[in-house]
């Protein structure tokens, strides 16, 4: 029996299909449409990826992320906090601290040994220091996100970044460029400023020795290194795409529900 999790985020939609505790299909696509349409789109292509022909073959579907409510074919929805915890715990069972930086929000979650949420903290309203901020930085530098990644390990004197506002990111970066700072140092400064912010949030819920990062921004190696250094903790890399953590968690909750129901039947 198959179960699926769909994580409808602010920047990307993710879908994971599970069979017997294994991922047999997945899909990540940029958010460009209404949540229902995004859900249909990622589900369809994850089905193709898994070699399945119809959504009817999936017994239970859970949604999470900003667009999680009001998806007609979903069985139930869960918060992305619970799903990221579940997904990260599934990938790395020893995890106790998760840092999730997505398209427009960031969270630090502490996890119980069974993968349930112990405590969490979340950024307030604005998208400071998230994926949107990095997009603004990239625009300011005239690069794309991949371009940033290529340069980020080369900076040895990180610039001071005073403002993590996604709206002001571009102008902040442009003024640094005008002052003659090198791209790698600007990018290193950007990563450091986000890492500092995450340290502040992480302190609030407590940090374990091993920290797992999830969400799109965890693909940014420079940022991951910066956060590890800042927290004085080892950032354990996920064996599976960390951007899928929320969708994996949702699919696991769907699996648990399916099993509960078949046990009851």
């Amino acid at each position: 029996m198959y179960t699926a999790g769909i994580d409808l985020g602010s920047a990307t939609g993710k879908c994971v299909i599970l069979k017997d505790n294994k991922i047999i299909g997945s899909r990540i696509a940029p958010t460009q449409a209404h949540p229902t349409e995004m859900a249909n789109r990622v589900m369809k292509s994850a089905l193709a990826n898994a070699g399945l022909s119809s959504v009817n073959e999936i017994s239970t579907i859970f949604t999470t992320g900003y667009g999680r409510l009001n998806i007609e074919f979903a069985t139930e929805n869960m918060s992305e906090i619970a799903c990221h915890a579940k997904g990260a715990h599934w990938m790395i069972p020893s995890v106790r601290t998760i840092i999730d930086i997505g398209g427009q929000d960031s969270k630090v979650i502490s996890v119980n040994p069974d993968g349930s949420v112990d405590d969490f903290t979340m950024n307030d309203r604005c998208a400071a220091g998230t994926g949107r901020f990095f997009e603004g930085v990239a625009r300011g530098l005239g690069l794309d996100l991949a371009g940033i990644s290529a340069l980020e390990m080369q900076g040895d004197e990180p610039c001071a970044i005073s403002n993590q506002c996604s709206v002001f990111a571009e102008s902040e970066v442009v003024s640094l460029m005008n002052e003659g700072h090198s791209f790698p140092n600007i990018i290193a400064g950007v990563n450091l400023s986000v890492a500092r912010r995450m340290r502040g949030m992480a302190r609030k819920v407590g940090v374990s020795e091993e920290v797992v990062m999830t969400g799109g921004c965890s693909k940014n190696d420079g940022l991951v290194a910066s956060i590890g250094k800042m927290l004085g903790a080892e950032i354990v890399r996920c064996p599976t795409d960390p951007q899928l953590a929320g969708a994996i968690g949702a699919a696991l909750f769907a699996k648990a529900k399916m099993e509960r129901e078949s046990a009851a039947a």
Binding site: N77, M78, I81, A82, V117, D118, M122, R125
Partner: peptide, 16 residues
């Protein structure tokens, strides 16, 4: 306005 974050927090609180 923009109740997305609020709903996530409340739902996570209820789950916890």
């Amino acid at each position: 306005s923009g109740t997305g974050q609020l709903k996530t927090r409340i739902q996570a609180f209820i789950e916890s």
